[in-house]
Design a binder for these strands. Sequence first.
DNA 1: TCCATTCCCGACAAATATGCTATACTATTT
DNA 2: AAATAGTATAGCATATTTGTCGGGAATGGA
Lengths: 138, 138
Amino acid sequence: MKISTKGRYGLTIMISLAKHYGEGPIPLRKIAAEYDLSEAYLEQLVGPLRNSGLVKSVRGAYGGYMLTRGPKEISAGDVIKVLEGPIQPVEGIEDEAQPQRELWIRIRDAVKNVLETTSIDDLANQKDDNNENYMFYI
Amino acid sequence: MKISTKGRYGLTIMISLAKHYGEGPIPLRKIAAEYDLSEAYLEQLVGPLRNSGLVKSVRGAYGGYMLTRGPKEISAGDVIKVLEGPIQPVEGIEDEAQPQRELWIRIRDAVKNVLETTSIDDLANQKDDNNENYMFYI
DNA sequence: TCCATTCCCGACAAATATGCTATACTATTT
DNA sequence: AAATAGTATAGCATATTTGTCGGGAATGGA
């Protein structure tokens, strides 16, 4: 049970955009350099973020990405959902009454609650530091 | 962010043992048949459970596995931790003050709380049914 | 107009994880 | 001794993860 770099880097992008909110488009090159990540990989991750409407892009020189809403209006769950898949299982959990059902629901709801009540703005205003490359195991 | 069959089948084993608690050793063959799972695969999963002291084995004819403690004294977290990896990240989260740090801690604590307050006995006394093979996405 | 910058798109690939199967044991009970 | 059952290890097909690479297309500035 883990959150992969996909979700983590995705949050990194969103947090960086939140920090520069209102400053116009921010290029991925800058974010990649700032956090020492692969720009090409970030490009892959930002695709879904754009398609889901969390960020918008400006092409060309001096282009980049920017949040479509204020950092307070975007939750960590919005980002994780797009990059790591749905928080709620697509099928099975509602109709199947397996013994573990109650446990999965409890866990899902607990995680959901945290993800939905934590905004990108909250995270952007944490103390900043470098971005380690380890996998986070829950 | 998902829980794989490893953790799910592991819980299935533990729940089955909880249901037959006090009846002596239960062979994996029986559990595998009851839930229509591969016995050989369950054998792989029960290894870590034995090594971590959650179950003990009795070899030979009429042998099998049994819980080392009462079902109320074993939490879902005990099982998940063994099969899916540590709930707490091994390194990094404490000393690295990355922006997401607070979020990971909040999620970890929320999940941890659910896993630790839900006992195997709780799950064994849920309404029983078959065990679907889908992946559970959080 | 040309060019550097930047987003956009799709293919590919190495590494790891998942979900098993198979084999060959060893230990214990009857 | 034979049957039952656990133990250990290896292999393997598939999927996912974590990227890389190459080529476009749009844009702004010189």
